[in-house]
Computed example of a mutant assay.
Amino acid sequence: MLYFITGGQRSGKSSYAQRLALQLTDRPVYLATARIWDEDFRQRVERHRQDRGPEWTNLEEPVNISRVDIDGRVVVLDCITLWLTNLFFDNQEKSVDEVLEMAKLEFEKLLEKKATLIVISNEIGMGGHADNAVARRFTDLQGWMNQHIAAKADEVTLMVSGLPLTVKAGKQEKRRE
Rank of each mutant, 00 (worst) to 15 (best):
145 M>E: 11
20 L>S: 06
3 Y>E: 00
126 M>P: 11
27 R>G: 13
138 F>W: 15
133 A>P: 13
81 T>E: 08
60 E>C: 06
63 V>C: 02
22 L>A: 04
7 G>K: 04
62 P>G: 04
67 R>A: 06
24 L>P: 12
23 Q>V: 03
71 D>A: 14
16 Y>R: 02
158 L>I: 07
169 A>C: 15
53 G>W: 00
160 V>E: 10
160 V>S: 12
3 Y>H: 05
114 K>F: 07
176 R>L: 11
10 R>F: 12
120 I>W: 01
76 V>R: 00
164 P>D: 15
62 P>K: 10
123 E>W: 04
39 E>L: 07
167 V>L: 06
139 T>W: 08
42 R>T: 11
100 L>R: 07
68 V>Q: 06
73 R>H: 10
112 E>Q: 07
126 M>L: 13
143 G>W: 09
139 T>V: 13
142 Q>E: 06
51 D>P: 00
116 T>Y: 07
87 L>S: 01
124 I>S: 02
31 L>Y: 07
168 K>W: 03
44 R>Y: 06
71 D>W: 08
11 S>T: 09
153 A>H: 00
57 T>V: 10
2 L>D: 06
125 G>H: 04
9 Q>T: 13
141 L>Q: 01
92 Q>I: 09
64 N>G: 02
82 L>Y: 09
117 L>A: 12
61 E>N: 13
108 E>Q: 08
52 R>C: 01
116 T>D: 14
168 K>P: 06
105 L>E: 15
108 E>L: 08
22 L>V: 05
113 K>A: 02
124 I>W: 05
50 Q>A: 05
120 I>D: 00
124 I>P: 07
111 L>V: 12
124 I>H: 01
165 L>H: 14
110 L>S: 03
114 K>P: 05
15 S>G: 15
144 W>H: 13
138 F>R: 01
37 W>A: 10
149 I>F: 05
155 E>V: 07
135 A>S: 11
108 E>D: 11
64 N>S: 14
164 P>N: 15
88 F>A: 00
129 H>T: 14
66 S>V: 09
39 E>Q: 05
136 R>A: 12
158 L>P: 12
15 S>Q: 09
165 L>D: 08
147 Q>H: 09
63 V>I: 08
113 K>N: 09
104 K>T: 09
122 N>T: 11
38 D>M: 11
73 R>M: 04
12 G>T: 05
84 L>I: 11
99 V>Y: 04
85 T>E: 02
40 D>V: 11
131 D>A: 14
126 M>Q: 15
138 F>M: 09
12 G>R: 06
59 L>P: 02
148 H>R: 15
55 E>R: 08
133 A>M: 02
132 N>K: 02
98 E>T: 14
146 N>W: 14
175 R>P: 01
88 F>E: 00
144 W>Q: 04
44 R>Q: 07
111 L>E: 08
3 Y>Q: 02
152 K>R: 15
103 A>T: 02
27 R>N: 02
172 Q>L: 12
141 L>P: 04
137 R>V: 03
141 L>A: 00
42 R>G: 10
116 T>K: 05
93 E>N: 13
149 I>D: 00
71 D>H: 13
